Amino acid sequence: MRHPPRSVLLAVAGTVALVAAALTPVVTAQGAVPACTVEYSVTGQWDAGFQGAVKITNNASALSSWNLTFDFANGQKVTQGWSARWSQSGTTVTASNESWNGALGTGASVSAGFIASTAGVNAVPAA
Rank of each mutant, 00 (worst) to 15 (best):
S89H: 13
G14D: 14
A95Y: 04
A29G: 15
T15E: 15
G81R: 03
A103T: 15
N97Y: 03
V54L: 15
S87K: 05
S109G: 08
A126H: 12
F72S: 05
T118L: 07
G105W: 07
N59S: 09
G31N: 13
A20I: 02
Q30F: 11
G107C: 01
V110Q: 00
W66T: 01
S7W: 09
W66Q: 04
W46G: 06
V42T: 10
C36T: 02
W66E: 01
V93F: 04
A35C: 09
A119K: 13
R85T: 08
A22M: 07
A108E: 11
N59C: 10
K55A: 08
V19E: 06
A84T: 02
G105E: 09
G14H: 13
Q88G: 06
F114R: 00
G52D: 02
T91W: 03
G49V: 02
G81L: 05
S89P: 01
W86K: 02
T92P: 01
P125G: 09
H3Q: 13
A73S: 15
V26Q: 11
G75A: 12
P34L: 04
P4M: 10
S83N: 14
N74M: 06
T57V: 07
Q80D: 14
V33Q: 15
A123T: 12
S96A: 15
A17I: 11
V27E: 11
D71P: 10
R6G: 06
K55I: 08
C36V: 03
G81S: 06
V33A: 14
S65K: 15
G120K: 09
D47W: 06
Q76A: 07
P25A: 13
R6K: 12
Q45C: 12
V42I: 13
P25S: 12
V38Y: 00
L63S: 06
V42L: 02
G75I: 11
F70T: 03
S87P: 02
P34F: 05
F50Y: 12
D71H: 12
N74G: 10
A123V: 08
P34Q: 02
G120C: 11
Q51H: 09
A17N: 10
L68E: 03
V19F: 04
K77C: 03
D47T: 14
P4L: 09
V93L: 06
L63E: 01
G105M: 06
A95F: 07
D71G: 12
G81I: 03
C36Y: 01
T57K: 05
A29M: 09
A20W: 00
A32V: 10
G14L: 10
T43M: 04
T106P: 12
W86M: 04
E39L: 14
A123S: 15
A11F: 04
A48W: 07
N122R: 10
N67A: 15
T91Y: 04
T94E: 05
L68M: 15
A60H: 10
L63T: 05
N122L: 11
A20E: 04
